[in-house]
Amino acid sequence: MRRRIGAFDIINTLILSIVGLVCIVPFLYTFFIAISDGKFLIRGDVSFFPKGVNLQSFIYVFTNPRFDIMTGVRNSAIYTILGTIVSVLLTYSTAYVLTRPRIKCRYLIMSLFVLTWVFDAGMIPRYIAYSSLGFIDNIWVMIIPDAINTQYLIITKAYLEGMPKELEEAAIVDGANDFSILSKIFIPVTKPIIATIALFNGVAIWNQYLVPQMFLKTKELKTIQQVLANVTIGTEGTTFANTIINGISLNQQNMKAAAIIIAMLPIVIAYPFVQKYFRNGILIGSVKG
């Protein structure tokens, strides 16, 4: 049943297009600032499109010894990869066991997870607890303590509970043990939830700012988010020295913009390929939220 395209459709398409633009324009604008010549910026001559296009700011940001962006990117990548693997393993295996009726204490354990999730201990007790466990200046602080996010544990558990009971029963009849049931039967059929928790955890670790800021003090261990926030928002105003290279002015504005672009690039590049999983993941999470 086809209807004519009316005024509403046109306006609606227009609104939605604007909404779509609003989602990417800030990134585009930041990029334009990064490639603009500082002398136009400082006078307020750049409204949206770049002036004096050049890539000096990126070169500067990459080569500045004080602004260790590559260390930040490398660290964040390591933490994200390790952290994602560990959190998927821990979340999945915990959720799996907690859905097995044979385990008697599963309600107690789950209640404790939920309780500590709803009742927030706060940053200070967490800081004191983790530091007494030796997590100061220790890269594992990015990987171990938050490996099990209770929200994802709930989602995973709900998903596994939705699996037909016959799956396991048939396997037991065949003489399989718990390890082989998990690896041969459950994991293959629950790939969507694994992809989901992997992606959510991965993004969360990459984007973490407060945790590394509280625990990772040594320059060599800092994440990209810390490195970025310190120069763009913090008071560390001396990291970027205003200079003129080949007649191009570099000032705080275009250098900071270049740093922002580099910090978000991995997410933006990966996004088109994984956004499908994100969408599914959100739905899995909400079906039996």
């Binding site: 500082g38 002398k39 400082i42 006078r43 008071t235 560390e236 105003g237 001396t238 990291t239 970027f240 020295a241 205003n242 002015s249 000032n251 705080q252």
Partner: peptide, 14 residues
């Protein structure tokens, strides 16, 4: 106004 901002203002004649 960070130190960097201030320096850039002084240097650029702002």
């Amino acid at each position: 106004n960070t130190e960097g901002d201030w320096e850039s203002q002084m240097l650029s004649g702002n």
